[in-house]
Structures are given as C-alpha cells and as structure tokens.
Nucleic acid binder design. Structure first.
Length: 851
RNA sequence: GCCGAAGUGGCGGAACUGGCAGACGCGCGGGACUCAAAAUCCCGUCCUGGCGACAGGGUGUGGGUUCGACUCCCACCUUCGGCACCA
C-alpha cells in the first residue's frame, strides 16, 4: 500500500473517475452521426449468476474496451453496450428450492454483477442496457418467433417469405390446406424424441444427463417422442455455409461450423424391395461402390420395417426395435464397438446388377440422417465391414487401391479400403478412377430413373422448446379443433404468469401447464383455446440482442430501420470459444431470416470475431469451487485496482491463448503503474514531478516515443495487447532514467496508456493540467522519420556461425556493409584466409559470408 | 477413431513476410539506501566448460529444404479443445 500523500491511490482515483464518467455520460453513443465513421464493439453478454463475475469475464471485456477506447480516440463513433442474458436454469432451480421468483433472483444478481463490471471502468453506454427477461425485451423475441411462424422458405429463391405468399396446391380441403401451410412454416410442431426421466417426471437437456442417468438423483433416462417446437434451420444450411466466406472469423471457428453443418455430396439411389410395390431411397457419398453393396441396413425406427418384415423374423425384429428404443443416445454410441442387428427376412434388388440383397436393421444406422436406410458396402466402409464380419455377410471388393499390397488384401476381403482407386467387379465401369466413376454412375442412374445427385447435411432442425417456467412463453394458441394460431403482434408481450409452484407439471409439461386460468381462454368467436405451455430455450434471447442495443427503448418497433442501417454490422465481437457453434450459428440463422424479411440490411451480423482463451487457476487447472483455485476479481481490484486488473489480464499472454493466473504477475503490472505514476507525479506533494517540464526532448527519447506510439497502435489493431503493454513498460523504464521528462512526451505517453488503464490516465492528465476527459483526445500520431535509427547493428555470420557485430550508418549501402564486415578482425580470423564465395546482406539484420 | 490448436529458460511469454532465440514481466542471486525491514534504485540470471576475453550446445523427437529454420516440408511423440457410427 502506498502511504505517501501524493502516491498512486488507485482506489480513490478509480472511484472518482467512474463516478464522473457516469454523471457526464462520457460514453454515450450517438445514433446516426454521419460526421464520423461508426464502430460497433460487442461483448458476449453474461448470464447474471449468483456467483458473480469470474476472472474470465473481464478478459474479453477488457480487450473490447481497449479497442472501443482506442477507436474513440481515432475519431470513430463507438457503440459499446452491455446487457444480461438472464433466462436460465439456475434461477429456476433456486425458485423450486426456495419459492423465490426467478425475476427477483435475477434482478439481484444483475445489480451485483453490474456493480462488479462498473468497478472495472469499462466504457459501456449503460443507457442501452438490455435484459432478456424484461417483457419489453422478450416482447420482441416473441415478435421474431412469430416471424418464423408466419414464414416459409422459398426453395427457388432460397429465402424466407411471408406465409401468405405460399402457393397452395389446388383441390385441397380446408383441413388439408391448413396442414399444408403448417408443414411449411419455419417454426413448426413435431413429435421428436426427447430425454424423459420418469422418476423426475421431467424432460432433461443433454447436459443434464451423465452416463444415461439424470444428473440430479441418478435416475434412468429414456428417449420418448413428445410434441416440440422446431425451427427449420436446415433450410438455411447452404447459406450458413456460403456466407462464412464473408466474415473475418478465426479459421478454426469457421471449420467447427462447417463440420457442424456437415455437408455431403453424393447420390440418392432407388432400391426396389422384393414382393413390395414401392421402392426405397438411400443416400450415399460413394455411388461408385454400388456394385459392392451386398446388403441393406435400415434404422430400427424406420416405419417401413414393420411392413417388410416376414412373419418368420417378426419376433426378433420387434425385440430388437424395442431394445433400441430403450437405449439413450449415449448407449448407442458407447456400444459402438460391436455391431448388433437382425435380419428382416426381406430382400432388396441392387439396381446396378439386379442382385438380391438382404435387408437388416441395426442401430448403427441413424433414423435422423439421410433416409434412415443405407446400402452396405463392406469392402469400402469401415462400419459396414464390421457389420458384415459380425454376421458373415459377403464382402465384394469394387475399388482397387493403387498400392499393390493393399490391393491384394482388399481383393481377399481382408482389408476395408475407403480411399480412391480404380473400379473392379463393376461391369461396364471397370477400370474407371473413383471420381469419374461417381459422375458416370450418377448419370447412368438418373437416365434410368434409378437415382440422382443429392446433398445431405448433418445439421438438424433446431429443437426450440423447453418444459420450463423461466423462459419466453410462446405467443401461440391451440384451438379445440386442433388449429395452431399465432398471437397478433398487438397482443405482445405475452407475459409469464405468476405461479405458486415452479416444479414441473410431472407430465413432461412445463410448470405453466398447472395454471389453468392462464392456459385456458375463450376466443372472440366463443370457441375455447389453450396457450402453448412450453417456453423458449435460453438461446432465444441471445440470438438478436445485438440488434436491440441499437434502439433499446423503442416501444413501437423492435428497432428503428435507420439506426439499424447506421450501426450494423457488428464490427468486432469478442467472446469465449465455447459459443463457437451453437450461439454463433443460431444468431446467424435468425439474422438471415430477418434479412430475408427486410428487417436488417446485412447478410451476416458479426463481421469480425475474436475468441478469448480460458484463464486457469494458479495451479494450472480449470478454476472451480471444489478445487479452491477460483480468483475473485473483487479482491484483485481492492488490492491492486481495476487498472492493474485490466492490465494484467491483457499482459498474461495472447488473448486467444489458455493461460494460468498468477498473483505475482498482477503485482508485476501493478508495479509498472506505480512506476509510471512516480515518473510523472511527485509522491510527496501530489503535484507534477520536478523532472516533468517544458523542455526539448532528447533524440533517443523522441525515437523511443515514436516507436512506442506506433507499436502500441499496431498491436491494438492486431489484438496483441501483451506486447503493447511490454512496449509501454520499456518506455516508462526509459523515461524513469531521464533527469528531464519533457511534458510533451509525457502527455503523449498518457494518451497511449489510456485505453489500457483509463483511470490512472485520466488522473495523470488532470495533473498535467487538462480538465476534459481523455476519452475523445486524438490518438497521437507518430513520425516515420523520427522512428528510424541513425545507426544499425548487423550480425556477421561466417559459414552460418555468428562471429561479430558491426555498426554502420542507417543509410549505408550493401557494398559499404560488405566492406565493413570483411574488415572485421574476428571475421578475418574466422575466414582463415579463404576467399568469400558468396556474401548475403539482409539490411537491418545480418551479413552472411560463405567461404 | 476423426478434426482443430499448441509444445521455446525455474514460470507467463517475445521473436515483423526464413535473418543476432529468450523482448517485457515474474522468480532467483548480488549490491545501494536504511539502525533494521518494506518500498525503491542498480547489476546479474538459457545450459555446459573456463577466473576470463571465449568455446560448444540449445525452441517436443527424428529427418529434409536453405548461405541461414522457433518459423517451411515429411514422419512421429505429448498436451489441450471439439465431434463422436452422419453412410
């Protein structure tokens, strides 16, 4: 602790400036200000948890704040908002336990986390704060949901359109028409298997299941089909893939999204089923292996299984299907080691060679991908190979690898080969290389009406409902005669009702199902209806919050079109990599719907994305309560100040890297700030230090200052905050050694320090006699000429070994440098009288002499 | 199993498009100031050998390309993260 009167009293300084910024609304962003370029810096908003802020939050927030402050100084109109992703399970669970309304818990947590965030001095425009659980916010979440509900996807134009524009086939009855329309909505109801825990009487999220048992209580969980709301994200698969080319995101994150979407190009092939009127389609990426298809495998859940199974095999098939239904996803993947399955007694015809092949069912075939049925080519697919081995099915090689040894094994049926090669045992196609064969057979099949080119995605439609209380209610009514009606926009928000009991209904429905006077209502025409009792998942509110910041208080619209045009897209989005797929994919999806309907002007919401890495405990382990290695940001701020906290989080290492915390490291940067203070301020009086005065700066100081300004600016632009800080340390060390510290130099240093450590920078500027905030001071320019060194030092290598260093004038040409290098005594000695064969001069670095 | 990221002093890390490896910070050792301590300031600190100017080795391992490799190429090892039978 600094005891001197004029010492660096960070606690007082930080409180003072935070107060002033708040009172003066220093960081208020001006809408539609065309006098300056705009810059939108966004943080992933936090869930307001009872545990409060952890040290991971300020990492991303500090990085974005440095950029925000830097851009302001560079003359940008900066939008830098903060809010709360406040729907979520913890508040609901707390309500079940204590009866406290989640809104109350949430409000309390928000207050406390806002105080924590404010204590770090981030330059947010707090007038734009949003809270996803506020009816004035979720009103518009519901509004967007209705847009999904009231839209369909036009396949030819590849975009969403209002449902009224859907062309309906002629001659349908009213009922059929209704069903046709409902079947095309981008938000639709479907029966899908969910994780049902009979003992708890509730549906669980995948994350709540550990090893097939419920996380709470350890009860068994089964898959059970239930009515759910779905969003048709699969329609956007192609655009979600294509538009990744437009954004400046880390390649690794793009790759994760690409893999998640999982596009495969191949063919659909039609297989006739023996003694059956209809055909079955299968999808394959290897139509070239069609001649090697020796059996077919159907997913156990596939409905046609019932029809094709022969009486002889019915019992075994039924038993297998039952077992499969009882398995959780986890069991199915866990038992991946050994293939199981049963024969149905039915046969299909291979369209390539008219061979009769048996149809099996097995749970290694997924109902949810492709058509739920495959052609099995044991010789060229690992899974089919295992299956064939298990049940002694024939293995026919149809691709010959280039490698002789491999080819022999493949031909003997002893090796499964999945690579490309040359066609064999494939009739008229023999000899074709894989790629060409694929094309030819696809054409051959489509000419005969036996198949066609096809694309499949791993991406599934988004299961969008939860059986919870603490989420956005769906603005949906179910009529007695089975119609689904979306509320009209004027009826929004549909607010969450007050409940007595937050426990699930026990039927798999949400707690809302228990409140009859909320659920049941009478429509204008006198008929009865019931409200949808599911709620939206936590993702919903976070899918569009970046748009509400643009116009948070608008009661008439979700946001103003002009404001949207002005601010969007988000120029920089910083957050954790854990949202690489879901949140970022979901919000891109919502954004595209809004784009199609004309509510936003950009295809993509987030232009540049940066992920911060996780911060580990001092023991190098993930921070957790049970390990006792959690660092409390409040304590760090109390002991060292917010500026030290900010600086340390940035100094630890590259932003994206995973790195362990070190309290001694905090002390290190704190010492730097103490030193910077002492270099400028007299600790005894609190006035400017005597050494700081109007004076001409020395050459070395001017050079280093200019180098530092350049380095810090460049580093901020490239998110290399750690090296920017080290450059400032070097500068302060230099300045500290000067007897005279010219005021003009000190002033510029304070400006470049400001984005990193804004409180101390404001206070130092105050000491330097300024009364206005540093926030909008122009970022100092550097002079290219002044950066240049007068003399440069080059290392001299002889045959790859460094022998000497020479100093030459910066303007020296290659010849002069050569001469100087060859003149060095050490170099002459190392050359041992030999003539140089080659001399390479790399100007500011090295001279390489080869003898 | 597949995909992705990363391996540099005692520790966190630095090194621009291939050009003096270890910036900056921590820690440690020594010194100054002090009655003493803290704080601060100065010097040293990759490893081995030598009192020393110096010599040799060194960026996970083994090869390669190059006048020159932490950086590029090939093979492998380890750690972390993601996906998990997607035909």
């Amino acid at each position: 602790m600094n005891v001197k009167k004029g010492g660096y009293n960070f606690n007082a300084i930080e409180k003072k400036w935070q107060q002033l910024w708040k009172e003066r609304k220093t960081f208020k962003a001006n809408d539609c200000d065309d006098s300056r370029p705009k810059y939108y810096v966004l943080d992933m908003f936090p869930y307001p948890s009872a545990a409060g802020l952890h040290v991971g939050h300020p990492e991303g927030y500090t990085a974005s704040d440095i950029v925000a402050r830097y851009k302001r100084m560079k003359g940008f109109n900066v939008l830098h908002p903060m809010g709360w992703d406040a729907f979520g399970l913890p508040a609901e669970q707390y309500a079940v336990e204590t009866g406290t309304h989640p809104a109350e818990t949430t409000q309390r947590n928000i207050e406390s986390m806002r105080r924590q965030i404010e204590s770090l001095g981030f330059s947010y425009d707090w007038d734009r704060e949003v809270n996803t659980t506020d009816p004035n916010y979720y009103r518009w979440t519901q509004w967007i949901f209705l847009k999904f509900f009231n839209s369909y996807f036009d396949e030819t134009e590849q975009k969403a359109k209002p449902i009224e524009q859907l062309s309906i086939p002629e001659g349908l009855s009213e009922n059929e028409k209704r069903r046709y329309i409902d079947g095309h909505r981008l938000a639709y109801e479907d029966e899908v298997p969910v994780n049902w825990c009979p003992a708890l009487g509730t549906v669980l999220a995948n994350e709540e299941i550990i090893g097939g048992l419920s996380e709470r209580g350890g009860h068994p969980v089964i898959r059970k089909p239930m009515r759910q709301w779905m969003l048709r994200i699969t329609k956007y698969a192609e655009r979600l893939l294509d538009d990744l080319a437009e954004v400046d995101w880390p390649e690794s994150i793009k790759k994760l999204q690409i893999d998640w979407i999982g596009k495969s190009i191949g063919a659909e092939v039609k297989f006739e089923i023996e003694n059956c009127d209809w055909d079955l389609l299968v999808f394959t990426t290897r139509p070239d292996t069609l001649f090697g298809a020796t059996d077919m495998v159907f997913a156990p859940e596939l409905d046609v299984v019932d029809m094709i199974t022969t009486d002889e095999h019915r019992e075994a098939v039924e038993k297998y299907r039952e077992q499969a239904a009882r398995k959780s996803d986890l069991d199915r993947t866990d038992l991946a080691k050994e293939k199981t399955g049963v024969f149905t007694g039915a046969y299909a015809i291979n369209p390539a060679n008219n061979e009769k092949i048996p149809i099996w069912i097995s749970d290694y075939v997924l109902i949810s991908y492709g058509t739920g049925a495959i052609m099995a080519v044991p010789a060229h697919d690992e899974r089919d190979f295992e299956f064939a081995k298990e049940f002694d099915l024939p293995i026919i090689p149809v691709v010959e690898p280039d490698d002789k040894q491999q080819a022999d094994l493949v031909k003997k049926g002893e090796l499964c080969f999945v690579g490309d090669g040359k066609a064999i045992n494939s009739g008229q196609f023999d000899g074709l290389p894989t790629a060409e064969f694929k094309e030819q057979i696809t054409n051959w099949l489509s000419e005969r009406g036996l198949g066609r080119k096809a694309v499949n995605y791993k991406l599934r439609d988004w299961l969008f409902s939860r059986q919870r209380y603490w989420g956005e209610p769906f603005p949906i009514l179910h009529t007695e005669d089975g119609r689904i009606i979306g509320l009209s926009e004027e009826d929004l928000p549909l607010e969450l009702p007050v409940v007595e009991n937050y426990k699930p209904a026990g039927t798999g429905e949400s707690p809302l199902a228990n409140i009859d006077d909320w659920v049941s209502l009478t429509l204008a025409d006198g008929s009865k209806a019931k409200r949808e009792t599911n709620t939206m998942p936590q993702w919903a509110g976070s899918c569009w919050y970046y748009l509400r910041y643009l116009d948070p208080d608008n009661n008439r619209r979700s946001w103003d079109a002009e404001k949207e045009k002005y601010w969007m897209p988000v120029d920089l989005y910083i957050g954790g990599a854990e949202h690489a797929v879901l949140h970022l994919l979901y919000s891109r999806f919502w954004h595209k719907l809004l784009y199609d309907l004309g509510y936003v002007s950009t295809k993509e919401p987030f232009k540049k994305l940066v992920n911060q890495g996780m911060i580990l405990g001092e023991d190098g382990q993930k921070m957790s309560k049970s390990r006792g290695n959690v660092i409390n940001p409040d304590k760090v701020i109390t002991n060292y100040g917010a500026d030290s906290m900010r600086l340390y989080e940035m100094f630890m290492g590259p932003l994206e890297a995973i790195k362990p915390w070190s309290m001694q490291g905090v002390e290190g940067v704190h010492r730097f700030l103490q030193k910077a203070w002492r270099v400028i301020v007299d600790e005894d009086t609190g006035e400017l230090a005597e050494a700081v005065k109007e004076a001409q700066a020395g050459e070395a100081t001017v050079r280093l200052l200019n180098q530092t300004i350049k380095k810090v600016g460049d580093d901020i632009e490239n998110f290399r905050f750690n090296t920017a800080i080290s450059a400032m340390m070097i500068f302060v060390n230099h300045l500290g050694q000067r007897e005279i510290r010219p005021k003009s130099v000190v002033e510029k240093f304070v400006l470049i320090l400001a984005p990193f450590a804004p409180h101390i920078a404001e206070e130092l500027r105050d000491k330097l006699g300024h009364t206005d905030t540093v926030a909008y001071e122009p970022w100092p320019e550097y002079d290219r000429e002044l950066i240049k060194e007068k003399e440069i030092e080059l290392a001299v290598q002889v045959n790859g070994k460094i022998k000497d260093r020479i100093v030459v004038a910066a303007e020296a040409d290659e010849e002069q440098i050569k001469q100087k290098a060859l003149g060095s005594k050490k170099v002459i000695a190392a050359m041992a009288g030999k003539e140089p064969k080659k001399i390479i001069v790399v100007k500011p670095r090295i001279v390489s002499i080869i003898t």
